[in-house]
Amino acid sequence: MGCYHSKKPKTQGYEDPTVLAAETPFTVSEVEALYELFKKLSSSIINDGLIHREEFQLALFRNRNMKNLFADRIFDLFDVKRNGVIEFGEFVRSLGIFHPNASIKDKITFAFRLYDLRQTGFIEQEELKEMVLALLHESELTLSDDVIETIVEKTFNEADTNGDGKIDQEEWREFVMKYPSLIKNMTLPYLKDITMAFPSFVASTEVEDSD
């Protein structure tokens, strides 16, 4: 069996890898490898087995105080229980959407929820402009107000095919089909090789993969 460890540390929010593997595109070994990554991220500032917002920011930007609208939205979506931290199960289930084998439908839905800043069930023009401004701020790219307005309006009108002033899920799906690069960042090829990144853990895994 190759079991070097008789017991696995059971930290707060830890979930059975076999259950997580059954619910996601990951194998049991991959979930175990993700636990190694999770442990690293969740102990970078506060060693409590939970990823806090600052730890997430630190991992993404090497800066715990880096404010970024999109990273905040990702954190909020990963934090399914909305209790201000990401637990292991939430981490694995959310990352599952970014797996190359996850369904395009799930990726499109996740991106929609990400951009629906105020969670109204629609992406509104004001939200789109807010996101463009946030991106410009982050990239230090300078565009005139007129150019920003033109980009936002043109995009919005193209996506809002029924012309009701907001982008719904179906309009978003059609827009992504037209511009597939929009969900490119919803796929992390790296997740297919996650066990290669953390081989030390795989050697000590308790559960053998069924597939």
Binding site: A59, F98, Y115, M131, V132, L135, V147, K154, I183, L188
Partner: peptide, 26 residues
């Protein structure tokens, strides 16, 4: 592509905050 010719969603999808690959960097 120039930012001016991109649609708004293409532009925002370039955010570093959406690039989770950095989570896996050692």
């Amino acid at each position: 592509a120039s930012p001016v010719t991109m649609n708004a969603f293409e532009l925002i999808s370039k955010s570093r905050g959406l690039d989770l690959a950095t989570l896996f960097e050692k």
